[in-house]
């Protein structure tokens, strides 16, 4: 569980570095590739964001559960 929490920011960083691969407007014009439209970029970035939030909340919830379990065992 702890490991999942530890790796969450790494996953986030990797997903958010995907835009580094996108061609910018000038590059796209130069090489005649279709540029990424802003609305698509927004949807991608916010999906990653939303995913991180949901996953983070799930981890936090699980962690609380497992903490409570351990405390119960300790008693």
């Amino acid at each position: 569980m702890i490991d999942t929490i530890r790796f969450l920011p790494v996953i986030g960083a990797i997903l958010w570095s995907v835009p580094l691969l996108w061609p910018t407007q000038e590059e796209a014009e130069a090489s005649a590739v279709k540029a990424i439209s802003s609305s698509d970029a927004i949807i991608y970035i916010f999906l990653v964001w939303f995913g991180l939030v949901v996953f983070g909340a799930w981890c936090a919830y699980r962690m609380k559960q497992s903490n409570a379990l351990e405390e119960d065992k300790g008693r």
Binding site: A13, W16, S17, P19, L20, W22, P23, T24, Q25, E26, A28, A35, I36, S37, S38, S39, A41, I42
Partner: peptide, 21 residues
């Protein structure tokens, strides 16, 4: 409207993107 506007296309330079984050 977004796609039609002047910021309608991805114009982010990679180095700025990473550095600013």
């Amino acid at each position: 409207r977004i796609d039609a506007s002047e910021i309608g296309q991805w114009q982010m330079r990679g180095d700025r993107w990473a550095t600013l984050i």
